[in-house]
Amino acid sequence: MKTNLLILLFTIFLLSCMTSKNSENVSVLFKRWKIDYVELNNQKMEEFGKEEGSMEYEFKKDNTYTVYDNGTESNGKWEFNVEEKSVYFQNPYGEIEGKVTAISKDKIILIPTTKIGKHPELEIVKFHYKPK
């Protein structure tokens, strides 16, 4: 009985540590991001996306995001995938628009696509963002 209780407590402890680490990682996402550069086929394309106010993302704690693109705004929802350690985001119609594949306090990498996995040609484009 004591062994089962110890195993249960240890499992709960491990899961709480994993959840804490994942939520810490996601919490750095909660700010506004602007394009640093675009990568196409592993080649840096710095001239793309340099217009001020172009394709900026703001991720919020309530699992929503806003895209600012040259004076227009659109909103959607995001969800953290624990297994992949990625953030999927979708438009108001529930369609997946892409995912954030790397998250740190100074950088995120975003892959835009309408159907993850169904359009691999779009997944060769990576948008590197930095905090605004």
Results as ranks from 00 to 15, higher is better:
residue 25 N to G: 00
residue 119 H to A: 11
residue 109 I to Y: 00
residue 113 T to M: 08
residue 63 N to L: 13
residue 69 D to G: 00
residue 123 E to W: 04
residue 120 P to I: 07
residue 13 F to L: 15
residue 122 L to C: 05
residue 119 H to F: 11
residue 17 C to D: 05
residue 23 S to T: 10
residue 84 E to I: 02
residue 44 K to M: 09
residue 77 K to F: 01
residue 91 N to T: 01
residue 70 N to S: 04
residue 107 K to T: 11
residue 124 I to V: 12
residue 10 F to R: 05
residue 4 N to M: 10
residue 71 G to Q: 00
residue 17 C to N: 15
residue 89 F to Q: 01
residue 84 E to Y: 06
residue 16 S to C: 13
residue 75 N to L: 01
residue 97 E to I: 06
residue 123 E to M: 04
residue 89 F to V: 02
residue 84 E to K: 15
residue 20 S to I: 06
residue 80 F to I: 12
residue 57 Y to R: 02
residue 54 S to D: 10
residue 86 S to T: 05
residue 9 L to D: 08
residue 105 K to V: 08
residue 91 N to A: 03
residue 40 L to V: 14
residue 113 T to F: 06
residue 68 Y to G: 01
residue 40 L to F: 13
residue 3 T to M: 02
residue 61 K to D: 15
residue 127 F to I: 09
residue 73 E to F: 01
residue 90 Q to C: 01
residue 86 S to Q: 11
residue 6 L to K: 09
residue 119 H to R: 09
residue 35 I to Y: 05
residue 45 M to K: 15
residue 47 E to Q: 14
residue 130 K to A: 01
residue 1 M to D: 03
residue 48 F to S: 11
residue 58 E to R: 13
residue 128 H to F: 05
residue 94 G to I: 05
residue 87 V to A: 07
residue 121 E to Y: 05
residue 59 F to T: 08
residue 49 G to K: 05
residue 51 E to S: 12
residue 50 K to I: 08
residue 63 N to A: 15
residue 93 Y to C: 00
residue 130 K to I: 04
residue 104 S to Y: 10
residue 129 Y to S: 03
residue 103 I to N: 07
residue 28 V to E: 10
residue 111 I to Q: 07
residue 68 Y to I: 02
residue 45 M to T: 10
residue 67 V to K: 01
residue 101 T to C: 07
residue 65 Y to I: 03
residue 90 Q to M: 13
residue 75 N to S: 14
residue 127 F to W: 07
residue 60 K to T: 15
residue 26 V to S: 02
residue 5 L to V: 13
residue 117 G to V: 08
residue 107 K to V: 07
residue 48 F to P: 02
residue 52 E to K: 15
residue 46 E to T: 12
residue 32 R to Y: 01
residue 129 Y to G: 03
residue 71 G to W: 01
residue 16 S to T: 14
residue 85 K to Y: 02
residue 98 G to L: 06
residue 80 F to V: 13
residue 23 S to C: 00
residue 85 K to N: 12
residue 101 T to R: 03
residue 79 E to D: 15
residue 52 E to M: 09
residue 33 W to T: 02
residue 17 C to T: 10
residue 122 L to W: 11
residue 76 G to W: 02
residue 128 H to A: 04
residue 1 M to W: 01
residue 122 L to D: 13
residue 65 Y to G: 03
residue 126 K to Q: 05
residue 25 N to K: 13
residue 16 S to A: 15
residue 43 Q to H: 06
residue 40 L to A: 09
residue 15 L to Y: 13
residue 113 T to A: 12
residue 110 L to T: 04
residue 125 V to T: 08
residue 42 N to Q: 11
residue 18 M to F: 12
residue 132 K to H: 02
residue 101 T to Y: 03
residue 76 G to K: 00
residue 39 E to N: 07
residue 55 M to P: 00
residue 38 V to D: 02
residue 80 F to T: 12
residue 72 T to W: 00
residue 5 L to W: 03
residue 25 N to M: 09
residue 82 V to T: 15
residue 55 M to W: 07
residue 102 A to V: 13
residue 77 K to N: 12
residue 48 F to H: 10
residue 98 G to P: 03
